[in-house]
Design a protein around this nucleic acid. Structure first.
Length: 901
RNA sequence: GGGCGGUUAGUUCAGCUGGUUAGAACGCUUCCUUGACAUGGAAGAGGUCAGAGGUUCGAGUCCUCUACCGCCCACCA
């Protein structure tokens, strides 16, 4: 007996099925089982790997639900699908975690030494690094775990090494001394993308710089000083000039003169440079080439000295003389105080500006002069732009295209070296003279050095590691075995779709495309679906630190992954604003589906003909059966149409309404009397259709709610007469096709049925007649031939609205009846002796008013010659039909009113 | 400073290429413990589609401007 329990228990069910799926190898591509022969129908998701320190948040949950839906859908369509899961090593984040851990034992990584420290990190990774992947399993993600990868594993490390060397050999990697973003807390360089700009309420400090030798003779401005404005006074310790605009009349006389740098008591020149904006501040800029990117450029143009005044940890160094040893913010305060006491401080204006923050620890980033490795991006960006122009990379929705191309057009070189230990160490060795040897191994470097000098040389490896993104940008092909000529690579590259969040466009999307083009000559994926951002109801981004996060695992624990996925997808037409209540949709829906199935199974006890095949003779089916099959056909077509263009939310909404409104509210309700009736033939037919429709429905829903559909589908499978033809799992059942079961006539007739029932129920409710009281009802059709149509569902109406029904084209209205009018017919109930109808007068009068307005509007439209002339024929026809319907309706209403007067 | 998105029922949102009396979910009102489901069923109330112009026979849907909200990008110190 395959009856379902009264309640659905997601927890056990979900665990059970995930285990089965994984152990039976359903997550692996078909070609693993059947040989590589499906190349035409591959579908590969280029999933961005989550960071190994991460835990699943709602953003992940949405992202991965979408990917799983697409993968499951394509798998059912028969495609050879592959979804390779994995994690990246998250260099800075992971190192921070482990450093914090050893700090508890009062140790630093430097005390431990590189090797021991890295051992600790690996240990941490083994113990904690699988949190996020196990969470993806809870979500139901059908990734191929046998192919799971990690950016630091052997193969991917080889890919990183190889890509570095290839780029170096193509002159696309260079070492340089530039101003980069520096995080003083993590003590490492960051790329531009890793320094997140945030608006900060800062200040503009106005400071006097005394003019050398001008004394009181100054004629034009100030007397003995000029005023500079700066947001970072502490950097003045490293000033090596003061600049004005060449055409600025106020300062002409000062150009070429010298000023005394306060506190440091150094003489520095006044120079002229186009870059200075005379409108801003005082029109005078202090130039600190070692601590500001603009100043660095200006310094280059004027051959200025670069004075670094800061240690890597943000503490002032010996160049800052009396301020050495002070933290950058303390020094700022002290410097302002000292200037004040010397009478050189003028004022502090509050000033709103954007300042970079470390995306890992949120510290204020320092523009810092240092020697780093860079990737020359322009040549690669040009290739990417070309591929885009050729239509090889398409964004959904389209508007993100501009974000992408703008970034590529204004691209800047990528700083890839990091002064940390956890990551891929840069494959570069130096000899004593500082010459560079780029090599795949120490031996190779030694050999190169030997060639150069003709003798053994001692080499030192560059201690820095590469940016984590330098390994993730290779993901779409490194996971497939590149740089080896692996079978997977040949077969699965390029992948099909990339699904990601908007903030990842620069970090990844663009870089992956560039890497794909650079190393394989082919873009790594063609379609890029950018989904919405998950936010808390307040509109803020969900984050743990803000305390407004909803933990997806808690939700799964409570209502199941299916309910979570369903709710989220339904809401995800654009940005998703979440609150706990929003998950009720999914919970209620899974419950509804469960109970509908219970009903079906309960009524299949003696039934042996359940089949997933469409073997109905259309003309012999009853109206409700014809109708539900037609609707099923509609919804099959619609959901496919939406899925094709990443409209998961629309597809899910379609299915929701089909299941709830069409199948449960109408079809099941109509099936009840038939199933309990004595007509065995009709009963069997309805059982067949119930079974068939439910089975198809489950398949359509499976990508969104994989667990419950599998559970139910297996129960149906036990009941099926053709079970031997069913696959072992719904995961491998075929995605339903358009079976051309559409039937406009049935849909129209069914609509009349619904109107008739609703019309009677409405009268009942308004007149306070209890649903249990049986009534006499009459349907007055306007044309004799319609009697036949209504006869086909007379019984249904009687059952659903508890009436004895007569269908009568010649019905004569009278005071014993009260009715509701529709365009094609009217429905009446006998109220004689039951209620006093007088209060209906008002309502009907209102309806008459509405109808009149509507008729007038339509008449006006149709009287307009231009409309008739310009509008398409079918539109005009439709409007004419509407007018005639409206007129009929008006007439009916008027007649109804007349009954009471 | 540049770019993008939003403004539709009490609330959260759909509404594709302009053409059914603008839809749904939640909430609300009334009724219903009817053997699938109260995480339910039935009926109902509720909107001058942010504002102003324009294009059109016809605009929530296209164009312009305005207002407010939000996001992303940015080396004016």
């Amino acid at each position: 007996m395959s009856e379902l329990s009264a309640r659905y228990h997601p927890k056990e069910t979900e665990k059970k099925w995930y285990k089965v799926w994984e152990s039976k190898g359903y997550f692996r591509p078909r070609s693993d089982h059947e040989g590589k022969k499906f190349r035409k129908n591959r579908y590969v998701i280029a999933i961005p790997p989550p960071n190994v320190t991460g835990i699943l948040h709602m953003g992940h949950a949405l992202n991965n639900s979408i990917q799983d839906i697409l993968i499951r859908w394509r798998r059912m369509k028969g495609d050879d699908v592959l979804w390779v899961p994995g994690t990246d090593h998250a260099g800075i984040a992971t190192q921070n975690v482990v450093e914090k851990k050893i700090a508890k034992e009062k140790k630093t990584r430097h005390e431990l030494g590189r090797e021991k420290f890295l051992k600790q990190v690996w240990k941490w990774k083994e113990e904690h690094g699988n949190t996020i992947t196990s969470q993806l399993r809870c979500l139901g993600c059908s990734c191929d775990w046998s192919r799971e990868r990690f950016t630091m594993d052997e193969g991917l490390s080889r890919a990183v090494l190889e890509s570095f060397i290839q780029l170096y050999e193509r002159n696309l990697i260079y070492q340089g001394h530039y101003i980069i973003h520096w995080c003083p807390r993590c003590e490492t360089a960051l790329s531009d993308e890793e320094a997140a700009h945030k608006e900060v309420q800062g200040a503009l400090y106005h400071i006097k710089y005394p003019i050398q030798g001008m004394g009181r003779q100054a004629e034009k401005i100030g007397d003995d000083h000029i005023v500079v404005a700066t947001t970072r006074p502490e950097t003045m310790l490293g000033d090596t000039a003061v600049a004005v605009h060449p055409q600025d009349a106020r300062y002409q006389h000062l150009i070429g003169k010298k000023v005394i740098l306060p506190l440091m008591e150094r003489e520095i020149p006044v120079i002229q440079d186009e870059h200075v904006d005379p409108e801003f501040g005082t029109g005078v800029v202090k130039i600190t080439p070692a601590h500001d990117p603009n100043d660095f450029e200006i310094g280059n143009r004027h051959q200025l000295e670069r004075i670094n005044v800061m240690h890597p940890n943000g503490v002032i160094n010996e160049n800052g003389k009396q301020y050495a040893g002070m933290d950058r913010f303390k020094a700022r305060k002290k410097i302002v105080e000292d200037l004040e006491s010397q009478g050189l401080f003028i004022r502090r204006d509050s000033h709103l500006h954007a300042v970079g923050h470390c995306y890992r620890c949120d510290s204020m980033v320092e523009p810092y002069l240092s020697k780093q490795w860079f990737v020359r991006m322009k040549p690669m960006a040009e290739k990417a732009l070309k591929a885009h122009k050729e239509g090889k990379t398409v964004f959904y929705p389209e508007r993100w295209t501009k974000v992408y191309t703008h970034w590529l057009e204004g691209i800047r070189d990528w700083c890839i070296s990091r002064q940390i230990w956890w990551g891929h160490q840069i494959p570069v060795w130096y000899d004593e003279e500082g010459h560079i040897f780029v090599a795949r191994s120490e031996e190779e470097a030694q050999a190169k050095a030997r060639d150069k000098y003709g003798r053994e040389v001692s080499l030192k490896r560059d201690p820095d590691v590469l940016d984590t993104w330098f390994s993730s940008w290779l993901w779409p092909f490194s996971i497939l075995g590149w740089p080896e000529k692996a079978e997977d690579l040949k077969y699965f590259y390029p992948t099909s779709d990339l699904v990601t969040a908007p903030e990842i466009i620069f970090f990844w999307v663009a870089r992956m495309i560039m890497a794909g083009l650079e190393f394989l000559g082919e873009e790594p994926f063609n379609r890029i679906y950018i989904h919405g951002t998950v936010r808390a109801q307040s509109g803020l981004k969900m984050s743990k630190s803000l305390g407004n996060a909803i933990d997806p695992l808690e939700v799964i624990e409570e209502i199941g992954a299916d309910a979570l996925r369903f709710s989220m997808i339904m809401l995800s037409a654009q940005d998703v604003y979440l609150s706990r209540e929003k998950f009720e949709v999914g919970r209620n829906f899974t419950n509804k589906l469960w109970n509908a199935t219970r009903f079906v199974l309960m009524n299949l006890d003696d039934f042996k003909e359940g089949s997933c095949q469409l073997n109905f003779e259309k003309d012999r089916l009853s109206l409700p059966n014809r109708w539900i099959l037609s609707r099923l056909n509609d919804v099959t077509k619609e959901s496919e149409k939406w899925l094709d263009q990443f409209g998961l939310s629309q597809a899910t909404t379609e299915l929701y309404h089909f299941v709830w409104n069409d199948f449960c509210d109408w079809f099941i309700e109509l099936a009840k009397p038939t199933l309990m009736g004595s007509d065995q033939e009709a009963k069997r037919q309805t059982q067949k259709v119930l079974f068939f429709t439910l089975e198809r429905m489950l398949r359509l829903l499976h990508p969104v709610i994989p667990f419950i559909t599998e559970e139910i589908w297996q129960k149906l499978r036990q009941k099926a007469s053709d079970a031997k033809d069913w696959p072992e799992t719904i995961m491998l059942a075929a995605w339903p096709k358009d079976e051309r079961y559409q039937d406009a006539e049935s849909e129209k007739a069914f609509c009349m049925l619904q109107n008739a029932v609703t019309g009677i129920r409405d009268l009942r409710a308004r007149l306070n007649i209890p649903p249990s009281q049986k009534l006499d009802a009459v349907i007055h059709v306007k044309e004799k031939k319609q009697e036949e149509v209504f006869a086909t569902f007379k019984n249904s109406v009687e059952k659903l609205s508890r009436v004895d029904l007569t269908i009568d084209a010649e019905f004569r209205k009278n005071k014993a009846f009260i009715g509701n009018a529709f365009a094609d017919f009217e429905v009446f109930i006998r109220i004689e002796g039951i209620v006093d109808p007088s209060k209906e007068t008002l309502r009907i009068s209102k309806k008459i008013e509405e109808s009149k307005k509507w008729v007038a509007a339509l008449k006006k439209k149709l009287d307009n010659e231009n409309f008739v002339k310009n509008a398409p024929e079918d539109v005009v026809e439709r409007e004419q039909k509407k007018l005639s319907d409206a007129e009929k309706l008006l007439k009916s209403h008027q007649e109804h009113l007349a009954l009471f007067q």
